[in-house]
Amino acid sequence: MIFIAGKAERKPSPGERLIDRAFLSGFKKQHGMRRADFYTAMIVSAALEAAEDSCFRGTLPEETGILIAGRFGPQNTTAKFLDELLEYPEDQLLSTAFTLSVHNAAASYAAELLHLTGPVFTMTHNGKTIPEGPLAAVKACLETGYCTRILFLSAQESGYIDENLRRQRGKSSAEAGDPRENVSASLLTIYENESKYGPMDVPGNRTRTEGD
């Protein structure tokens, strides 16, 4: 059985499509993440909040894993590096945007800040909802003992792929039904005594029995 030990969610204010940038900037400053992009900041802020929400009060067991399922990944940072490529000779580019455009940068920051050394996976999808695969991976990690706790994060940053390109095609991202920017985090555990929100609602969530 998989239980939810802590959770956090961040969405834009009503009527907005973006998560509050002032909050994210403040978060970066507070945690010494000056170079990090907003995509990383929104993920790491949710990860820390879910850890804080749990019985561990922010200090998770070191072997806790991390799995991030992101739609498009850090698309605005990818665009930033493409801007560099268009504006400067290739042998004079700065590496920061490239480094952060790598999809698992957010997981790296989360692992570093929370001092987690468990398995880390970043998965990217293009659908409007998370596909079955990442959830299946979380479930498999926990059921096989690959890790006994995992921070599962889902993130969607708004940016040039969904906003600009949709508009240029004559349909806004909202009209096309794209999700608004959002991030959610759940700390999942196999230990019932760590549960705060009960069992996770996934198909086949079963109690482990001897011989499993």
Partner: peptide, 15 residues
């Protein structure tokens, strides 16, 4: 069945 694309940089294929 389930599908997942791993984007774990240079460890993606092993993961």
């Amino acid at each position: 069945g389930p599908e997942a694309t791993i984007s774990n940089a240079c460890a993606s294929g092993a993961d």
